[in-house]
Lab assay of single mutants.
Amino acid sequence: MGFKLLSKLLVYLTASIMAIASPLAFSVDSSGEYPTVSEIPVGEVRLYQIADGVWSHIATQSFDGAVYPSNGLIVRDGDELLLIDTAWGAKNTAALLAEIEKQIGLPVTRAVSTHFHDDRVGGVDVLRAAGVATYASPSTRRLAEVEGNEIPTHSLEGLSSSGDAVRFGPVELFYPGAAHSTDNLIVYVPSASVLYGGCAIYELSRTSAGNVADADLAEWPTSIERIQQHYPEAQFVIPGHGLPGGLDLLKHTTNVVKAHTNRSVVE
């Protein structure tokens, strides 16, 4: 069995187990497998329904001669939608809004960016022009300005110390501490036991640490421990890039980060 097929099978099995364990909360999309990078042309966006009122959005972007996937989250909030992270750029984010209108038909009224990198804030200006209120932590807003990236308009308070959590509509926002970046936030959907790890969490097929220019490698494993301790009931975990899975993604990420750190020390 090929690795790609095995990865998709694991996603399907995880979703099936969740649907059985929580039949009222989960209505997993039966329309197909989780979209992969090879299936999404740059400039297009796919939506994948995880649970009743919960979707991931998947886009792709060219970077350094390669094409990478990027995940975000959409959560229903009454007759409105909360968006977590842009679709990595203005063109993708405009396509995301169009796809949401086509498939869901509810307005996106608020959006949260989970850290300051372009795959999370690139497209904020498109959201703002569409009347979406954009939010991020003060740290993310400051770092985005320093980096020359787009800056969300509103500040999220109460997320300055490791372990801080605040309720934001249908989700809980959690600051686990520094990891992929010093400002990275985690998003949890309690009604569906869905954990969105953003770039602080890796997919299972990833074996290298990737972009760690703004990471705190020493603190990252401790931050992941905080996530595990705060959300032990999480059933569906979405990484910032690639295929979702279960809580095993947290341990896998820790292993990859520690291996990278150990290699760096040896070198």
Rank of each mutant, 00 (worst) to 15 (best):
I100N: 01
G122W: 10
S160D: 06
L81G: 04
D79H: 12
S113K: 03
Y68L: 06
P176Q: 02
S70F: 02
L143W: 12
H252N: 15
K8M: 09
I201V: 11
S27F: 11
P41W: 10
L217G: 12
H154W: 13
S137R: 12
M1E: 04
G197E: 01
I17N: 03
V187C: 01
G163T: 10
C199T: 01
I151Q: 05
L83E: 05
L82Y: 10
A178N: 11
V256S: 14
T222W: 11
G246E: 06
L243K: 05
L47E: 01
V67S: 06
V54C: 04
F63T: 10
A200C: 04
E233Y: 08
T253G: 00
H241K: 00
D64Q: 12
A15P: 09
H252M: 07
H57Q: 11
I84T: 05
V28P: 05
T140L: 02
K8D: 13
A94G: 13
A15C: 12
I17P: 03
D118H: 06
P170S: 13
A59S: 07
Q229C: 06
A165M: 10
N211D: 10
V11E: 04
V112I: 05
H260V: 11
V189Y: 14
I151M: 05
T109P: 14
L173S: 00
L249C: 01
T114A: 01
V108I: 14
L106P: 04
M1V: 04
E80Q: 14
N262R: 08
V75E: 02
G169M: 03
L83W: 01
T253P: 00
K251W: 10
V126F: 14
L13R: 07
H115N: 03
D29T: 08
S162C: 13
G89Q: 07
G78I: 10
L143P: 03
L97C: 04
S16T: 09
S139T: 14
E219T: 14
V132M: 08
P107T: 09
H57N: 04
C199G: 03
T222F: 12
I58A: 07
G89L: 03
V54W: 02
K91V: 15
V171D: 02
P35C: 15
M1K: 03
L6T: 08
T36R: 07
R76D: 10
S161L: 12
A130F: 05
I104C: 00
D214A: 12
G32E: 07
A25I: 10
V194D: 00
F116P: 02
A165D: 15
L127R: 02
S113V: 14
G53F: 11
D248Y: 07
R110G: 13
V42M: 07
S22I: 15
S155D: 05
V256D: 02
S7L: 10
D118T: 08
L6N: 15
Y196A: 13
R128A: 12
V54H: 00
V257K: 01
I186K: 00
F174A: 10
A66K: 07
Q103F: 10
K4N: 10
S56D: 14
R206S: 12
E203M: 03
V37L: 09
T182V: 12
G122D: 08
L127Q: 03
P170E: 14
S31R: 12
E172W: 13
P23R: 07
G105F: 15
I104F: 04
D118R: 06
P244V: 13
N255P: 03
Y231R: 03
D164I: 15
A136Q: 02
A178M: 12
G43F: 05
G198P: 00
A200D: 03
V126D: 04
D248K: 06
F174I: 12
A51H: 15
H117C: 00
V194T: 08
I224S: 05
D214L: 12
R120I: 01
A234D: 01
E39W: 07
P35Q: 14
V112H: 03
T140R: 02
I40V: 07
P41I: 11
H180T: 00
G32R: 10
R263K: 05
L173H: 03
K251A: 08
L73S: 02
Y48L: 05
V112N: 02
L6W: 11
V121F: 00
V42H: 09
Q228L: 13
V42A: 10
F174R: 06
V75H: 03
S162A: 14
V108N: 01
R167P: 08
I84F: 04
S56A: 07
F168I: 14
P23Y: 07
S181G: 01
R226H: 06
C199Y: 03
G198Y: 01
V112Y: 05
D125F: 04
T182H: 06
V75W: 01
I74A: 11
L96Y: 00
I238K: 01
H252A: 10
Q61Y: 05
L9E: 07
H57S: 05
E172A: 13
S62R: 07
G72Q: 00
A98V: 09
P176N: 01
G2H: 15
P239S: 06
H57D: 14
R263C: 09
V237E: 01
Y196R: 01
I58D: 02
V54N: 01
L9Q: 08
S38L: 09
T134C: 14
D164K: 08
D79W: 15
V42K: 13
L73R: 01
